[in-house]
Nucleic acid binder design. Structure first.
Lengths: 122, 122
DNA sequence: ATTGTAATTAACTGAAAAGTTAATTATCTT
DNA sequence: AAGATAATTAACTTTTCAGTTAATTACAAT
């Protein structure tokens, strides 16, 4: 049992899969169209599997048209991923760097101790 | 050899690790403080390993203080992850849904064919 | 010096991930 | 009906990941 976010982030952790999403951002594509750029370095079944991971994560929706499987990107799981990350925005923005710098100025001694004792002063 | 984004997304794909980041967002914590909530369900070495993954991804910075390893969150890798995801924002926002709905209205037939032929009309 | 606490390292296990080749299914074309 | 094309499934290998227990390192306190 793995959460939605688990699956989304796991799917995004692979460069082949991110490239496939990038391709799909340009528009619908069949499996072989998606596979094209990778067939030099991996087999078609490997691509099918990557696609399955994206599909299971809900990032790609595969339909049927004759012997083709047109795929399109579904962004909704990315919304949750984005929201999750956004929680941490302050940790990479300027304002935080300044806060951080400030916190470093304040002596960490007592706040930082785990044994409830004072640190020797330097 | 895995890219920065690979490592970041892979690190975020695990709920234990995300929980550890959530804890660190509250402020610095030692390894055992971080481990606390999980010691019911996993061993301390397991926690150390998760922490190592976060550290390798650059999401956590571990320092030394006596026998403790105070850890703090470093948000910068999240910035890249966020930027990557933001590229796809239009795929989960209203405006896109409308565009999508519109595209479905227009007959997909020729646009969607991969063999350059016309579809039989229904 | 000995003991206790914090954390890591070592060595191992089991399960999941990522790839392979070969065979199979489904559909279209002639 | 036969052949070509698109894609998947099966069976297998290899590697990586997540966890375990036991041993070890490092420091502090007495």
């Amino acid at each position: 049992m793995s959460s939605h976010l688990d699956q989304t982030f796991a799917a995004l952790a692979d460069p082949t899969r991110r490239a496939m999403l990038a391709r799909l951002a340009q528009g619908e594509a069949s499996v072989s169209e998606l596979a094209g750029p990778f067939l030099g370095s991996m087999s078609l079944p490997a691509v099918t599997k990557h696609l399955k991971v994206l599909e299971n994560a809900g990032l790609v929706i595969k339909t049927r048209e004759a012997q083709w499987r047109p795929c399109r990107l579904n962004g909704t799981p990315l919304k949750d991923a984005s929201n999750w990350i956004e929680q941490y925005r302050r940790f990479w923005e300027e304002s935080f760097d300044r806060l951080d710098a400030y916190l470093k100025t304040v002596t960490r001694s007592d706040k930082g101790r785990h044994d409830g004792r004072k640190k020797k002063s330097r």
